[in-house]
Design a protein around this nucleic acid. Sequence first.
DNA 1: TATGAATGAGCATTCATTCAT
DNA 2: CATGAATGAATGCTCATTCAT
Lengths: 192, 192, 192, 192
Amino acid sequence: MTGSTRGPNDPRRRERILDAALDVIAEHGAIKVTFRKIASAAGVPLGSLTYYFDDMQHLLTEAFTRLAESVSVRYGALLEAARTPEEAQEAVVEIICGKVWGTDRNLLLSYELYAFAARHPELTEVLRSWMHASRQSLARHFDPLTARALDALVEGFSIHNSVDARPTERADVAAVVRAVATPRTPPDGASR
Amino acid sequence: MTGSTRGPNDPRRRERILDAALDVIAEHGAIKVTFRKIASAAGVPLGSLTYYFDDMQHLLTEAFTRLAESVSVRYGALLEAARTPEEAQEAVVEIICGKVWGTDRNLLLSYELYAFAARHPELTEVLRSWMHASRQSLARHFDPLTARALDALVEGFSIHNSVDARPTERADVAAVVRAVATPRTPPDGASR
Amino acid sequence: MTGSTRGPNDPRRRERILDAALDVIAEHGAIKVTFRKIASAAGVPLGSLTYYFDDMQHLLTEAFTRLAESVSVRYGALLEAARTPEEAQEAVVEIICGKVWGTDRNLLLSYELYAFAARHPELTEVLRSWMHASRQSLARHFDPLTARALDALVEGFSIHNSVDARPTERADVAAVVRAVATPRTPPDGASR
Amino acid sequence: MTGSTRGPNDPRRRERILDAALDVIAEHGAIKVTFRKIASAAGVPLGSLTYYFDDMQHLLTEAFTRLAESVSVRYGALLEAARTPEEAQEAVVEIICGKVWGTDRNLLLSYELYAFAARHPELTEVLRSWMHASRQSLARHFDPLTARALDALVEGFSIHNSVDARPTERADVAAVVRAVATPRTPPDGASR
DNA sequence: TATGAATGAGCATTCATTCAT
DNA sequence: CATGAATGAATGCTCATTCAT
């Protein structure tokens, strides 16, 4: 009674399709996405896809939007849990090293998203919201510039660590985060 | 008769094809690359492509390799020119803000490259060399961990700045670079 | 509950659908008619069409029948109004040149009808009735053979005039009609 | 040796495709033409069609042009053979009744052509040339207005005869043709 | 009685790839 | 050595039709 799997009303089907699309992109690359692969991954008939989505571009746009939002949420959750500046720094380190969003899958999807967004302006806004949300999460604990810097660091380290044969170790990442995050008085008032 | 109007040997043709491939990727996205588009962009006959390259995957692999090397060179050149730590820091800021490699085109191509490389192991090595070269260039002026951190910062800021409606200003970037680059005595003598 | 905003009985809906079908054919060509276009043009829900009509073929058959009848009526009306042989001839000229039925729209629809009818025998009868009605209208004023001839002339001139960059002028059409319509004694008393 | 059926050079393939297209239209109607049907009728691979023709519209345009030209030629040939005014009139009667071009197939195709041309301006010119050629052929024997009238008569009678259960008999057609073609002095100078 | 959500068969078209020259 | 004509497999997408409500 709690919802047949195929009835005329399957309100979760849209979401299933979007998740399947991300799965297919993650597995084969956006370069090889096809309606047929998505339909098969989602376990829905081919005609469903164009019934729910005007065309592939719209489908991908929604799928990537969904990705950005879900990653964003997890990013924020970790920082929200932090209670002290030290915990906040630790959260950043965890985001970088603990693969909170930097799963290979998510990282991969984010490359595809960046590439796709560069050609589809409607996704630029999604990207901006995502970045803005990350910075806001960081801004609960750090000043705005530091928030920007840490966000950039998360991006850069995540990418490089995924490529690196010997990723930067957690303690080292922590040291860098501390350097960026700790305010300090210039040594002798010299520079700038 | 043995080729009067067009010499049978056109040694630059391979390179022309690879550059054309990058142009096509930059313009249409890897998702829409076709032999026809590349051939037309390079001004070579269609048959040329499969004559010089076994298939599209090989062609793209070489094209991306070419991209990585050329970007790498420019990155290194800027740092090599620095004579003092301050100049080195300034070079890093310039790389981030001056769009030395972070041209929209290059950035875009790098997303495509990352996405492509994630699925083609032979490119992982190319990516590693690229990253290694960057770090080596930085290591002329900074200790290894700082080099890694700055490299990550370059990556992250470049990406975020290209998305940001109001990119981080040069002075602010400089401040962050200084914070990462300036060695200091740890508060209580602990790490490193 | 039994249909407050829209009565469950919408007797004109069938007709609206048929008219919309003709509009769609006139606009897009029979080659591109779809249920969706018709439903949208008629302002009725998609399900309506297959509710009222078994399938597209039946719908088109009825639509074309409707067309034939309405055109036929106008043709007849003009001839019925004529009181003298001269007025009858003038009516024929008017039908040809005044675009009584030879509207571009009707002409266009008649091509589609002819093509459709050639493949759907049930429409042959409709076509015959149409032709028969036209001839009957003409037969009020002319002998049977002249009626046939004038009817053919209407058909042919209408088509040719719609294609012609410089259609045959009204006076010339009138002369031809007169030549066909005016009985005369054969040169040497032979034929007929 | 006189040409393998499938070699890389099959210069007649274009024409075969066009003829096959006309066959398919004649058999199924333009409304049901598909590349697959044409390819199969022509005995060529599916990919051939879009290799030789940019798209279906271009293919149909060429096919209809071919039709118009071939019909035009036969029409002209019959009239060219006539040596006296009487023979010319007889040729016209033959064109109408003898199914010179008014084959059911050709008639059918001409309906489709008219419908198609109404929506594809590039065919209007083809139609005009066709009509012009017919009139020129007639103008070898008749004055310009009579040529126009006879051409309209051919068109109209051909169509009506193909619909009619009892087509107008040859002798009657001949009488009408004579009435149109024979110049005469107005009975008593009255009319007009 | 009337609807619109859902589907699968079929379509035009694209394109990497092959291969005769 | 180099080419471009030719092909067939696959793609995104359309749509008549079905059917639960």
